[in-house]
């Protein structure tokens, strides 16, 4: 576990507490990039427990966060120039919002950490500041009942903490809203690109192999002359759903993510068709439209998990019709495409 952000230790009545830096090192920055690209994301953690920012004392504010290193890094950076305590609770390396949804950023864990780290001895006030998005997992009134500590929900974003403090622990309405601007959507795309994992290699390889079949026999030359186009088609469909649809999300006219993905998928298929990538016969072209459309639609639907405004009820409703259609499109398309390998129409 990386602990290079620790600069020393503070002796307190509750024991020694690590003092931490509020700036990001080159390594922090690089690890952030890697994490966004899914590399080591599930084990990017910090040790739970109390940390000291600056030179805090018994009257200093206490900020609670999860032990996903990216969450912790944003919080400590936002606290630069402030003397405060950070209490990191164990969310199994998951960010605050998701952890709150799963129940690891919870009333129970907050209460447990307050007790085992003797927060009551570290400070003489009885207030802790939680990120607003932790509220999904924490009942403020229960924490109060069990520990005596009042939970104050801070702003959604750590970057607004200074304004929140300056305003007497009040977050403006805007600071309480979750938005989903383009920059945020783009940051979440890389992880989805790796959704397919090793299938991203296996499936194109199978298509490449099959592309050599013709009604007249197998042709290796065909694999090299035009078979590679199947790889392009597959990735185009995949990326239309997991890159293009999320990037253009607010501008694609449908509400259902599956339809947004179908739109970007068919747009890409149309381009590929004019470039003669989808084959010559009508059957083959239709088959590709079905496969690319279904694939793109499915991948876009998956982005509901990254989005900040889709409800469980909504996604369930959407999937009820979308999933069978996607499966049918890809299956029929695949069957049609394989058919054209072996039979001339």
């Amino acid at each position: 576990m990386d602990a290079s952000f620790i600069t020393g230790h503070l002796q307190t009545s509750a024991g020694p507490v690590p003092q931490i830096s509020t700036t990001w090192s080159r390594r922090d920055r690089w690890n952030t990039v890697k994490t966004r690209w899914s590399v080591g994301r599930m084990s990017y953690r910090v040790l739970p427990g109390p940390y000291a920012v600056g030179a805090p004392d018994h009257a200093s504010r206490v900020f609670v966060t999860g032990n996903y290193k990216l969450s912790f890094d944003h919080l400590r950076r936002a606290l630069s120039g402030i003397d405060a305590w950070i209490l990191v609770i164990d969310t199994k390396g998951i960010n605050v919002w998701c952890a709150a949804g799963k129940g690891t950023f919870s009333t129970k864990e907050v209460v447990r950490r307050i007790r085992i780290h003797h927060l009551g001895e570290l400070v003489d006030h009885r207030k802790i500041i939680l990120p607003q998005l932790g509220a999904t997992g924490v009942a403020a009134h229960e924490v109060k009942k069990m520990t005596g500590f009042s939970v104050i929900y801070g702003p959604v974003k750590a970057a607004h903490i200074k304004a929140f403090l300056d305003d007497g622990l009040k977050a403006s309405d805007a600071m309480r809203r979750v938005t989903f601007p383009t920059a945020d959507r783009l940051k979440l795309i890389p992880v989805d690109i790796f959704y397919g994992k090793y299938y991203l290699l296996i499936v194109p390889a199978i298509f490449l192999m099959l592309s050599g079949f013709t009604p007249g026999g197998y042709s290796v030359d065909l694999v090299f002359s035009s078979g590679w186009k199947t790889t392009v088609n597959l990735f185009a469909g995949y990326l239309a759903g997991c890159v293009l649809a999320p990037a253009l999300l607010p501008w694609i006219p449908f509400r259902r993510f599956a339809l947004k993905g179908l739109a970007t998928g068919w747009l890409v298929a149309l381009v590929l068709a004019t470039l003669h990538f989808l084959g010559a016969g009508a059957t083959e072209i239709i088959a590709w439209f079905l496969m690319i459309g279904g694939l793109s639609s499915f991948m876009a639907m998956n982005f509901t998990g990254s989005s900040t405004f889709t409800s469980l009820s909504g996604v369930q409703k959407e999937m009820k019709t979308a999933l069978p259609v996607q499966i049918a499109m890809v299956s029929v398309g695949l069957a049609g495409w394989i058919f054209t390998r072996f039979f001339a129409l």
Binding site: N302, T304, G305, L312, M319
Partner: peptide, 8 residues
């Protein structure tokens, strides 16, 4: 009825 609004 809360839960993950996530297809996956």
């Amino acid at each position: 009825k809360s839960g993950v609004g996530c297809a996956a």
